[in-house]
Amino acid sequence: MSLESVYGQVLNEHNLHPFHKGETEGATLMLEGKNPSCGDDIILQLKVSEDGTIEDGSFAGSGCAISQASVDIMLDLIIGETKERALELVGEFMNMIHGKATEEEIEDLDEAGALKDISHMPARVKCAVLGWHTLEEMLK
């Protein structure tokens, strides 16, 4: 696996210039996710409408480039979607990170597909899934 395939443009862009870092006004859900072994720590906020649409979202906290970029990309994907669709994306992302996703699933994940080679970096899997796992916990 080449380093470029992980630390590429998409990851670096989302890490250095996250679109969704900060607070969500009128947030209806909030949950903290932690990786005790790395010290990665994020607080995910979502504003979910009564009909179950994720209208807005944000994250705060600190962590490695992989955890930060991954949660930012995730928010890009799920804002505007229903809770059900967001959970579907979580399932696809988990499959991808564990090296079990189909071509279609990876395509469906759009920019998050840029993280697929993390499946070859077992030590970093927990960084990549931190935001997604926190989202799943929130919505379930």
């Binding site: 080449s2 790395c38 490695c64 970093r124």
Partner: peptide, 19 residues
């Protein structure tokens, strides 16, 4: 983040601790 340092070094077989 130190974990990124460690992963980037690991790609060249350089083993350090991070955390």
């Amino acid at each position: 983040h130190p974990h990124d340092i460690s992963s980037i070094l690991d790609a060249d077989g350089i083993n350090i601790r991070a955390g």
